[in-house]
Design a binder for these strands. Structure first.
Lengths: 227, 227
DNA sequence: AAAGAATCGAACCGATCGGTTCGATGTTGC
DNA sequence: GCAACATCGAACCGATCGGTTCGATTCTTT
């Protein structure tokens, strides 16, 4: 049970926020909602559950969010923001293609197979049939953006002559899926009920890089031989 | 609205079934339930919805199934039975490795990205957090079995010298994911809201086979050059 | 046609749902 | 300390939920 006094204060507020404008209170609601939606999914989660979990009165929650769906969408938006920044940053760091792809793949696999992200996927996928735009937006602002960044990186390597790829978009999809081969699908279906160990991720991503370079590497500076 | 008179009779019944034992009535309930669960997911689907959709009285449904969950699990069991038989049969048909993998990959991609299977995945994934054994069982009787059959096939090709693979299990995961690269994930998140065209599947699977053989083919009879 | 039994469907039950109301309480600024 | 206002939490609303009851209807067998 969350004690409002424990909510970290980002900094001293200059004045008392208007009703529904307190960022700390808003965050408190979202934190509670995240727990409940993650555990029960959208439909089975009740606003009474969220009231209890967040420690915020239901009438206050309705000051901050217009409806259960509004709250859910705000939570999805927040979750998406946090997924991709660091992963794609790996593509901007120096190194051979093998090194860069290895780091990207590891970071990707670790993040996407983490407990929070798996829960988020389950929650979103669970409502996608009824609310396809939610699934679409989640994908577009998450996986899609990461894939686009990778494609751009591949285009640069093609221009530099280190890779030879006829279809860069498909190659980007391929590398993403190879990096999570045997991991994500089993995670999301609870066939693997814990986060993968580093060794498992290494095994998968190293093999992905090797396969990728065997197929697309030109042998000029891609660094495949250094695996 | 389903008219019981339209229910196809498998054959003339020799005697009147006892209450709850009529296969036609049972199928009618499951058909209606499939529609409703697919559209709304488990939690938002109501038994009243299923009554209306199936055209079977609610009290009769409760003669056949003990609860909403019982009905859902029966439906999942039925869905699983239908997923894998034909796909894995592709592995038993003659042809070079490239041909066999191509056919398997195409069949896999077409099936897994079909409307019914995408809906089933969404429904199952949506409840997996709360009922992990359902997700696990769905995966185990579906994807897992297909993966095992592929792994066995790969082992045979390794023994025959057409493939050289250090980690056959991981290679099987890789081929499965490559066959659906850019397809399944976008489908399940509604980023692609229709079934992939044959040309799209061919593009993906042909590239998967090429990549796979570039990495693991020995050049002895795998048939990669014929792509 | 009569008997037996499966099924139907309206009504019901207690519980919960999303959302609303409003007096009481707590917090902040002056 | 007081006034203003954010928040609280109990109570409420109409609706729906999963599941049950039971007389009426339908179907099959003799």
């Amino acid at each position: 049970m969350r004690d409002p006094a424990d909510t970290p204060m980002p900094r001293r507020r200059r004045r008392k926020p208007a009703a529904g404008e307190d960022p700390a209170k808003r965050a408190q609601i979202l934190d509670g909602a995240r727990e409940v939606f993650a555990r029960l999914g959208f439909d089975a989660a009740s606003m009474n559950d969220i009231t209890r979990e967040s420690g915020v009165s239901k009438s206050t929650i309705y000051v901050y969010f217009a409806s259960k769906e509004d709250l859910f969408e705000a939570l999805l938006a927040q979750t998406r923001e946090r997924l991709l920044g660091e992963i794609t940053a790996e593509l901007d760091r120096p190194g051979s293609v093998a090194e860069v792809l290895g780091r990207y793949g590891r970071h990707l696999a670790r993040t996407i197979c983490s407990e929070n992200v798996i829960s988020a996927h389950r929650t979103v996928i669970g409502v996608t049939e009824r609310r396809p735009e939610l699934g679409r937006r989640f994908y577009q602002d998450g996986g899609r953006r990461g894939m686009e960044a990778l494609r751009s990186y591949l285009l640069r390597q093609i221009a530099a002559g280190t890779l030879s790829i006829g279809d860069p978009e498909l190659a980007a999809y391929q590398f993403v899926e190879l990096s999570m081969a045997g991991l994500f699908r089993r995670r999301v279906m609870a066939h693997m009920d814990r986060e993968p160990e580093d060794a498992e991720i290494d095994r998968t991503v190293d093999a992905a890089v090797a396969m990728f370079l065997a197929s697309y590497g030109t042998g000029k500076g891609a660094g495949g031989a250094e695996i």
